[in-house]
């Protein structure tokens, strides 16, 4: 069996506070994994560590068997990890289509990007994403003028044109209406299989809708792992959530 992402003994120590503590998990190719955990469990920090925003104190991260722990953010991105932030992070002063053109360039070098042309594959990728995210009516608008939901979908779309093998999603439905949440779930479901996805999410309805396997974190450590029924019955998980009112 081939693993897309292997996290092994990952630890980060902020002046004595271990936000992520000896965390280990493996994610299969094409899997959709949800990470749950009460506030302060270390979910976002885990994403920071995988994507290179924060440097780990010890442990390692492997992407398709290749060690990426010590690479810088853009190298990790080039290796195949895409990240979506909780607050939509897009290029607000560029148009929607320009946002996608930036993300679609398979070429990181400055000098090789000194050209106008877009390859046919890039163009095709962009068109697919526009259809998937339903942004065709606003292609020429500034990304900053989009609705909150559209911004989130644009950011998701950029990860797809970027051709990220593993996508990290940090609360993709935060602040969304019911309809928007449903549409987001649809988009994510369509990505299943083609991309390996790691989602941090609080909305249990959403989690039940999309999740296959769930990993629960507590105080930086792995608490439980399994399918949704196992997790909901798990005693340790109930215990951890008691303080914050249980799983909703």
């Amino acid at each position: 069996m081939s693993f897309a992402l292997t996290v092994d003994g990952l630890t980060v120590d902020f002046n004595g506070f271990k936000a992520v503590d000896n965390f280990t998990t493996t994610i299969e190719m094409g899997e959709l994994r949800v990470i749950l955990g009460p506030n302060g469990a270390g979910k976002t920090t885990l994403m920071d560590l995988i994507s290179g925003k924060t440097t780990s104190t010890s442990g390692e991260v492997k992407l398709f068997g290749r060690e990426i722990t010590r690479l810088s953010e853009h190298q990790i991105a080039r290796a195949g990890i895409g990240r979506k932030f909780q607050i939509p992070s897009i290029f607000r002063d560029l148009s929607v289509i320009q946002n996608l053109e930036v993300s679609a360039s398979g070429e990181p070098s400055v000098f090789k990007n000194l050209k106008y042309s877009i390859t046919r594959e890039e163009k095709q990728k962009i068109e697919e994403v526009i259809e998937l995210t339903d942004l065709s009516d606003v292609l020429k608008s500034s990304a900053g003028d989009l609705s909150h939901g559209q911004m989130q979908w644009l950011e998701l779309g950029m990860l797809i044109t970027q051709d990220a093998k593993v996508i990290l999603l940090d609360e993709p439905t935060a602040g969304m209406t019911k309809q928007e949440t449903m549409k987001t779930a649809d988009i994510i479901k369509k990505l299943k299989g083609k991309h390996t996805i790691l989602v941090v999410e609080h909305d249990m309805a959403f989690v039940r809708d999309i999740a296959e396997r769930i990993t629960v974190m507590h105080l930086g450590k792995l608490l439980a792992e399994g399918d949704i029924d196992t997790i909901e019955k798990d005693e340790a998980v109930r215990e951890a959530y008691l303080g914050s009112g249980g799983i909703h």
């Binding site: 991105a77 990240r83 992070s89 990007n113």
Partner: peptide, 28 residues
């Protein structure tokens, strides 16, 4: 107006996003 120019403008708007898309922002 080249791709590089567009990527440069993207770093102006949100340097971190450009980084997570795989661009070495400092180089641009």
């Amino acid at each position: 107006s080249t791709r590089a120019g567009l990527i440069l403008q993207s770093t102006r708007d949100d340097a971190n996003r450009s980084r997570y898309l795989g661009y070495d922002v400092a180089a641009y």
